[in-house]
Design a protein around this nucleic acid. Structure first.
Lengths: 366, 366
DNA sequence: AGGAACGTTGACAGCGCTACCAGCAACGAC
DNA sequence: GTCGTTGCTGGTAGCGCTGTCAACGTTCCT
């Protein structure tokens, strides 16, 4: 076969075009916008490409078209289960599309985020997914100046850069506390670790609910900047008990902490929920099979990632969503650990997936 | 400023060269191999680049140089904690290097893996990290023909494609069973989910250890292809109990299953370890704080990812490791759930990080 | 019948960078 | 003094693809 090849031995578009008997540019169009070709040429190019095993050279395409087909994703952690669910959604949505994901880890540092953002933007990504709404002023300016669609994920708030998908951590925490009030609890502790902005907002929600009920005391709050873990949950709970031995419930900023609290209760032979109720956050899988089963606030992490990437890709392709801000809501999943009735599948308290959400206090439950 | 700019408004290498008063090619060299320049020109180019805020165009570089600075990573799951640890190691090691990570999820399908491999290879990655040693014949051929360094991770075996880092799941399972024998257990069940090749090898290890002791029975093994979860652990254990009510220990193929078994024991009021001992696999963080604390086989996942990426980058840069196959070993962390002495921090059984490893049976413990 | 409108195709000219090779000066060996 | 050698620099020629625009044939309208 005297077909001329590139040094690297790879098939080029020109060879496909030659075999199909069309010009290179027509072959090029086939890969970008097949509808623009007549059916005859379309099938010819298609079979030529298949026969030769043609794979487009992305670098050449990016150079010629002045844009890449890369979606940049900035998340604060790779360890956290929460983000692996979100990521899975993002990857699932990107699969089958022509976009590839470029992931970077900010390690919960907004300065690091700013640095990575600058790096990403320099490569002209097709779109960007960033975590949260607490960027530096500089980052914010770069995002606003970026000429690609952007989705902020994990939470919602005012002034989206572009699109936004998440839920209100504040409202979710309030709903969790409302549920505990509803079950007759009054002296409710808060246990939190890492204290990133979203955890902070959960704390704010807890605090406001407690204040509304005239029950807030600073001593009920135990937090640390240390990364979260099950073991840490036990340790923080131990601190809490030392300060306030007579608490009747604990709201944990995440499920790992809740599991740690549960184990610590077992270690201390504290009956759950009879002596102390436990509520977690995120509703990881194990919450439903712990003994007792653990109440948690369910968040739609996979869906969040998947929808974010889908929205982004649609926007890149020019189909902007009619709703740029999506509230995915949450749901308080009541289980044994907080049920005074000791029933397994109690009613659920939902966060309305709507714009104006002042959920929570007992009366507004469904 | 009459400097000519690209349409996109971005600074090009030519502008940097002009400002520095050198030719573009000299400026180019500055970014790839600064030592080749005279000190005078080096500093001139450096300050010009900084002044203009120059960022190289990766697409153009890739096109011109016929290679990319992308490391492809193929892993079977994004959900599994095990892989998020490995990934974190990979990302940590790649940070600061000039290589970026391109991640793809094979979803435990070797056909999918083959497809993704073809896609990756077409883009001429600088290096590749693939999971496991069970590729399709086709994949294997592609890997061997690839002209970039490759690291296989998660396990070790004969005939590495190139480099390899992991440990023997077979030996690790044997060591876990040896530990249970050592504690006086005889009727040991096996609980496994998903049954990917590595879980299969753990089962093989279990089976061989049991056979060696003349204790193997097929009824002791409960497995499913379903993805793993804590809840599933409870369900599989329930099945196992139905078949063999008088087992005295359970070896779980991973820690989630072990936690599920623990919860199920609690639900059925089976005393752990008095009635049934539990051993998990991976030693996730929560194992140490469960009640009772759970014995597990510790594996160095983060280190595995980090070392894999480091070795790969070194190899790309031409410094091949003297040891292409690295056995990271494992360690049986004995905790309350399998300790007849009910002691918390019992002795640990280590897997030698050596080539020839026939660990395990009670006598060879340290 | 003439012309506009549309759908389809191709020629040309780069995108920004680097591989390759040539050129030049400075230096040492014989 | 001549020749090679080394160290640095620059010119040329693409890498493989796509944006732009012009040109073509066909259809439809007036």
């Amino acid at each position: 076969m005297g077909r001329k090849r590139t040094k690297s031995g790879k098939i080029r578009l020109a060879e496909v075009a030659e075999l199909a008997g069309v010009s290179p540019i027509t072959a090029s169009r086939f890969f970008r916008n097949p509808e623009a070709l007549s059916v005859a040429k379309r099938t010819r190019v298609e079979s030529a490409a298949k026969e030769l095993g043609y794979v487009p050279n992305l670098a050449a395409r990016a150079l010629a078209s002045q844009r890449t087909e890369v979606i940049g994703v900035l998340i604060p952690s790779l360890t956290n289960n929460v983000f692996s669910d979100v990521l899975r959604g993002i990857y699932d949505a990107s699969e089958g599309s022509r976009y590839s994901i470029q992931l970077s880890n900010t390690r919960y540092s907004i300065l690091q985020e700013e640095r990575l953002l600058r790096l990403f933007l320099a490569q002209k990504p097709a779109g960007l997914i960033v975590t949260g709404i607490d960027q530096t002023t500089e980052s914010r300016a770069m995002l606003e100046a970026a000429d690609c669609p952007i989705v902020q994920i994990m939470e919602i708030g005012p002034n989206p850069v572009d699109m936004m998908i998440g839920f209100s951590h504040y409202d979710a925490a309030r709903a969790a506390i409302a549920h505990l009030f509803d079950q007759g609890h009054r002296k409710i502790g808060f246990v939190g670790a890492r204290m990133d902005p979203r955890v902070q907002r959960r704390l704010d929600g807890y605090q406001s609910a407690m204040k509304d009920a005239g029950l807030f005391e600073q001593r009920l709050v135990v937090t640390t900047a240390t990364p979260t873990s099950v073991t840490l949950g036990g340790a923080l709970f131990t601190d809490l008990l030392a300060r306030e031995p007579d608490i009747d419930a604990v709201f944990c900023a995440n499920d790992d902490l809740a599991l740690g609290v549960l184990f610590e209760c077992r270690r201390r032979e504290i009956a759950v929920p009879e002596q102390i109720a436990i509520v977690g956050f995120n509703d990881l899988e194990f919450m439903a099979s712990a003994v007792p089963t653990l109440t948690s606030v369910r968040t739609n992490r996979y869906e969040m990632g998947k929808t974010a990437a889908t929205m982004l890709i649609e926007a890149i392709d020019g189909r902007r969503p009619e709703q740029p801000v999506l509230d995915l809501g949450f749901k308080v999943i009541e289980r044994q650990s907080s049920s005074s009735r000791r029933s397994d599948n109690g009613p659920a308290v939902s966060g309305a997936a709507a714009a104006n959400k002042m959920i929570a206090l007992p009366s507004s439950r469904d």
